[in-house]
Every structure is written in C-alpha cells, then in structure tokens.
C-alpha cells in the first residue's frame, strides 16, 4: 500500500525532527503510538502472509490508546493506595494480575525484572539482597 508507506515515512521523519522538542500534544503522542502499532501489525502480517487493512491498524491504535487511559488511571490509584506519588513496578504487577490473557506477559515480566535487577547489581557491587530477590522472582 503506497499511501500507507508514505504516511509511515512521514510519521517517521516527523518523529525524528520533533523528538527534540517536548511532545505534549496528545495528537502527536497518538501519531507516535500509531507508528509503533503499524510496525507491529506489519510484522505479524508478514509472518502469516496476510495484509492488514489501514482502517484496522487505526482501530487497534485507538484501542491501545484508550487502554492506556484505563491503565494510567488504575496505576495512579494503586500508587495512591500505597501512599506513593511515583508509580512503581509493584503497581504494574498489580495491574497485570487482572489480565488472564497475558500469560505470556508473566514470562516477559519475570525476564525484565531479572534484567533490571542485573543492571542494578552491576551498578552496586554490594547487592546481596537484590540477587536474592531475582532468585525469588524466577521461581
């Protein structure tokens, strides 16, 4: 689809140019989200030798965008419940707990936690407590 590819390259250029400035407008954020979603959709479509309709990609973007709204409101409430003003990984875990379809996410989450803990361990050589934590999360 020529129009789609030209649209994508436009968004790509636009992102590179505009990224230095602060992206505050929701329209711009949505455009950035749309770019990533269309990349993911294209990858899935290519793997299965199918084509994704432009309208469909836009619909998935819209769903993801509204999902973000719900996620953000939940995360904020969780953080406030924990008497914090910063959303932590614990809040994200609580959010993921509700998603039964996210079985694969559990693996991803564990992997990521191990990765981030490893990064922290490298930074702080005296991290005996943290290596214990990674062991717990992999179990």
């Amino acid at each position: 689809d020529k129009r789609l590819s030209s649209c994508l390259s436009f968004v790509h250029c636009f992102k590179k140019v505009e990224w230095g400035k602060k992206m505050t407008s929701r329209g711009q954020l949505k455009a950035a989200l749309h770019y990533t979603v269309s990349c993911m959709c294209q990858r899935v479509a290519e793997q299965h030798q199918r084509e994704f309709n432009r309208q469909l990609v836009a619909a998935i973007t819209e769903t993801a965008y509204r999902q973000c709204d719900i996620f953000a409101k939940d995360l904020e409430a969780f953080a406030r419940h924990g008497k914090r003003s910063t959303v932590s990984t614990e809040d994200v875990k609580l959010l993921a707990r509700r998603s039964t379809a996210l079985v694969s996410f559990v693996h991803i989450q564990n992997k990521l936690e191990v990765l981030t803990q490893e990064q922290k361990d490298k930074k702080k050589s005296a991290g005996k407590k943290k290596s214990k934590d990674t062991e717990d999360s992999t179990q």
């Binding site: 999902q67 995360l75 994200v92």
Partner: peptide, 22 residues
Amino acid sequence: TKLGGDAVLLMAEMLKVFVQEA
C-alpha cells in the same frame, strides 16, 4: 503523580503484548 523508570519499561512491554494479542 510520576512514573518510575522500570515501571515505564514494563508498561511498554505490556502495551506491546496487548497490541500483538489484538
């Protein structure tokens, strides 16, 4: 309300899974 660095990482992963699932 602020977002922790690791929380952003996980949320990006979560959204990726959501889009791929869809």
